[in-house]
Amino acid sequence: MELLEIKDLTKSYDKKIALNNINIKIESGKIVGLLGQNGAGKTTLIKLINDLLTPDKGEILVNGKKVGIESKKIIAYLPEKTYLNKQMKVVEVLEYFKDFYDDFDLEKAKKLLLDLNLDINQKLSTMSKGMQEKVQLVLVMSRNADLYILDEPLGGVDPATRDYILDTILSNFKENASVIISTHLISDIERILDEIIFIKDGSVILQSDADSLRNKEHSSIDEIFRRMFKC
């Protein structure tokens, strides 16, 4: 059984079609890049998988069951925009996560924050954007989830921190769990991907194993993306 299966999924906002008849299958144990330009439909797709939007047509199955309360327990989601109360201290956010998610590993989160030189007694509002993004990533990666969904996790951070974030993702996702990372910063991230999904104007135009694609096209995923998405 697939960890995630998306069948004939369509979603529109008013008359604008955001996703047009999407079909995707993702197995356990894979890191998948969801790659597309701004406005391609990446965030809409992610919100649908997280049951934050309702599809017009089609269905989304996680471990064979329709998304809902059960799937939320096993999906760790890093949204593009923060939803945390910035007046909270990091240590308070940790408590909040511990209460909210049964699979949250508080000790692991503390250790990761320490590794990143983040002070757990600091208020979020006094942290830089990059620091806040690190905190949020730690929160998400400290859950023992089956599926991690990271929407633009590298957006606001400098290249050195990007590497650190990628390493954090690599060394912390549970064995047999899968990770979906949405981004348009492909060259930074492609070395850690098993599979790629190209999404354009609401349609999946390619799903492939990353190394096979490099082998076939003799170029990087970034370059292939640029070729296929030429305006």
Partner: peptide, 17 residues
């Protein structure tokens, strides 16, 4: 495999391959 993947900072599946 996991240790190697950590050393090279690559995906464990790629390391396994």
């Amino acid at each position: 495999v996991r240790e190697f993947a950590n050393i090279f900072k690559v995906n464990p599946n790629t390391m396994q391959k």
